[in-house]
Computed example of a mutant assay.
Amino acid sequence: MIRKAKPSDIPAIVDIAVESVSQNPLPVKIDREAIAQMIQFCLNPAHFGYVIEDDGVVVAAMGAISQRSFWYKGLQVSVLLYYTRKPGAGILLMREFARWVKSRSGIKTAVIELEPDVDERLVSFLSKAGFGRKTINMTYVREPGGQS
């Protein structure tokens, strides 16, 4: 069952988020409190916070924030979390997200950053769903003990 996330889902979503960022980890300390705060933020109707529940257990989650663009009139949406523990369930979240984005005329762009080892089927799905502009993200990662 796909549904809007609610406050009682936050602990389960935090666990999913931690699992997500642990798949291809960066050398940073995970902050569960920060994750919980951002999930709480995503529960606001101006933002996107959905889960998939299977037998009463949250098995997938997606969260995105909507904000005013800094260079054009309108809103930009940025996906913060997209992860599933149940194969095939995540596509339901992406479909709902695509519907949500398209139903809000104020949203002019929506950005989903994909991991380097993303399944090409997801890329194909997103392209067909209208997320067709590919960009390159370059990320600086401070190594543990690094100075600069």
Rank of each mutant, 00 (worst) to 15 (best):
M1K: 13
K4F: 08
A5I: 00
K6C: 04
S8K: 03
I10C: 06
A12Y: 01
D15K: 09
D15V: 09
A17C: 13
A17W: 06
V18E: 06
Q23A: 13
N24M: 11
D31H: 09
A34G: 03
A36W: 00
A36M: 02
A36C: 03
A36I: 01
A36V: 01
F41I: 08
C42Y: 03
A46Q: 10
H47P: 09
H47C: 11
F48I: 15
G49R: 02
I52D: 02
D54N: 14
D54I: 11
D55P: 01
G56Q: 01
V57N: 08
V59T: 14
V59S: 07
A60E: 07
A61Y: 02
M62K: 07
M62N: 06
M62G: 05
G63N: 09
G63H: 06
G63A: 12
I65K: 15
S66P: 11
Q67Y: 14
Q67E: 12
R68Q: 10
S69Q: 08
W71Y: 10
Y72P: 05
Y72M: 11
K73Q: 07
K73P: 02
Q76Y: 08
V77R: 12
V79P: 14
Y83R: 08
R85Q: 15
P87I: 10
P87F: 10
P87D: 08
G88L: 07
G88N: 13
G90V: 06
I91C: 06
L92R: 14
L92I: 12
M94K: 11
M94G: 11
E96T: 09
F97S: 05
R99N: 02
W100R: 02
V101S: 00
K102E: 00
S103Q: 11
S103P: 06
S105G: 06
S105T: 09
G106W: 06
I107S: 01
I107Q: 01
T109I: 12
V111T: 15
E113R: 09
E113Y: 10
E115H: 08
E115V: 07
P116C: 03
V118H: 01
E120T: 13
L122N: 10
F125G: 00
L126M: 13
S127D: 10
S127C: 12
A129G: 05
F131G: 00
F131P: 00
K134N: 02
K134C: 02
M138A: 05
Y140T: 04
R142F: 15
P144D: 13
P144T: 15
P144E: 14
G145K: 14
G145N: 12
G145M: 15
G145H: 12
Q147H: 12
S148W: 10
